[in-house]
Computed example of a mutant assay.
Amino acid sequence: MQLGEFEERLSYLVDLGRLVGRIRVDHAPRGLGKTSLLRQYQRRARERGAQTIWVTAGEEGVGLIAQIAAEIERESATWRSGTRTALSRHLESLTLRAGIPQIVGVEAKLKPDKAATAGGYRELEAVLRLAASSDDHTGLVILIDEIQAADPAGLLTLAYAWQHLQSEGTDVPAAVFTAGLPNAPEKISSAVTFSERFAYRPLLLLGREAEEVAISAPARHLGVVWEDDALAAAFELAAGYPYAVQLIADATWTAAGHPDPGGRITLDHVTVGRHAMKADLDALFRAPWGNATAGERELMTAMASLGDEPVQRAEVARVLGVSSESLSMPRARLIDKGLIQSGSRGKIEFTIPGFAAFIRDLDG
């Protein structure tokens, strides 16, 4: 669905030379392929002749606008002289208005309280207009990973600039596509009061058909067949989590001895492969568990003791013998870290399948 919507917007940008009016935000827990999806967007945009600007938000001491400006500066080094000269003037003005001391690659720094208030959004708008309209490409596509980590002033500046383009620059062939954790909409709305200008789209766990394609199609391409019971076992183990799908497919292929054409993947191979998969998942879980505070671990341990499904916040508080309100701070920190997320009707849940079982194994 995401790629189909992206292609539609890319055609609007490239074929009609129009602005994609809303900033896209694909959000999901870690391991669901957000960065890979954003790289797909980048590859397809480049294939259509668009100039892409890639930024990973949240670099220490570097604001979002500084990162965007630095990447445009770097990418434009080979553009035609006319556009390049005008763009350089506006980039220099942006550094002054938005509080960026200088543009030197990604080392440029943004004073986080000055971007929008100092008129930096108008200078950013001018930079985007020039960068998008250069004859060197068919348009401009900005891609921002880890959008939830962007500084509030940078988000506000980008939003103001895009709002002005929506009203005054619909003929500017530009778009912004971003990816972030489930709390990205909350982070953006806390910085930008008119966050309806952003289009939020959740990435979901893989359905059975997508899992089957991911697991068995590469094998079929090599003349190898997965037996039905082996596939069913792999589906159950992966639970639709893309990283787990990758792990069980790879571990099972190795357990089968990297079969030649005509080979078959059996349930026994999956049974052996699950041990390697568990070791890799445990390694994935160990780092965030080790970096959690004592209070965060207590909350997660209580959640895990109640099973793998979403649990009522009040029930977690009962297990811990505390008030539900006292969970607010560790809960908020775990949401910011992408380890849990809020569900419906006061429920909370782990974002990564298997994490609850990992915690129970630690207690065991």
Results as ranks from 00 to 15, higher is better:
Tyr243Val: 12
Tyr243Phe: 14
Tyr243Thr: 08
Tyr243Arg: 15
Tyr243Lys: 15
Tyr243Gly: 11
Tyr243Glu: 14
Ala244Cys: 12
Ala244Ile: 07
Val245Ser: 02
Val245Gly: 08
Gln246Val: 01
Gln246Leu: 12
Leu247Pro: 04
Leu247Gln: 15
Ile248Lys: 12
Ile248Cys: 11
Ile248Gln: 12
Ile248Leu: 14
Ile248Asp: 04
Ala249Cys: 01
Ala249Tyr: 00
Ala249His: 11
Ala249Thr: 14
Ala249Val: 00
Asp250Lys: 15
Asp250Cys: 00
Asp250Ile: 00
Asp250Phe: 08
Asp250Pro: 00
Asp250Met: 14
Asp250Glu: 10
Ala251Phe: 02
Ala251Thr: 05
Thr252Phe: 11
Trp253Gln: 01
Trp253Met: 03
Trp253Pro: 10
Trp253Asn: 02
Thr254Glu: 08
Thr254Lys: 11
Thr254Pro: 00
Thr254Gly: 01
Ala255Tyr: 05
Ala255Asn: 09
Ala255Ile: 01
Ala255Glu: 09
Ala255Gln: 04
Ala255Val: 02
Ala256Gly: 01
Ala256Arg: 01
Ala256Tyr: 01
Ala256Asp: 00
Ala256Gln: 00
Ala256Ser: 10
His258Ala: 04
His258Tyr: 15
Pro259Tyr: 04
Pro259Asn: 10
Pro259Ala: 04
Pro259Gln: 06
Pro259Gly: 05
Pro259Leu: 03
Pro259Lys: 12
Asp260Ala: 05
Asp260Lys: 09
Asp260Ser: 03
Asp260Pro: 03
Asp260Cys: 00
Pro261Glu: 05
Pro261Gln: 08
Pro261His: 08
Gly262Asn: 12
Gly262Lys: 04
Gly263Asn: 09
Gly263Asp: 11
Gly263Cys: 08
Arg264Val: 10
Arg264Asp: 07
Ile265Gly: 03
Thr266Cys: 01
Thr266Glu: 04
Thr266Ser: 03
Thr266Arg: 12
Leu267Met: 08
Leu267Thr: 12
Asp268Trp: 04
Asp268Met: 02
Asp268Val: 08
His269Leu: 07
His269Lys: 13
His269Asn: 14
His269Trp: 14
Val270His: 06
Val270Asp: 06
Val270Gln: 02
Val270Phe: 12
Val270Leu: 13
Thr271Met: 06
Thr271Gln: 07
Thr271Phe: 05
Thr271Ser: 06
Val272Tyr: 13
Gly273Thr: 05
Gly273Ile: 00
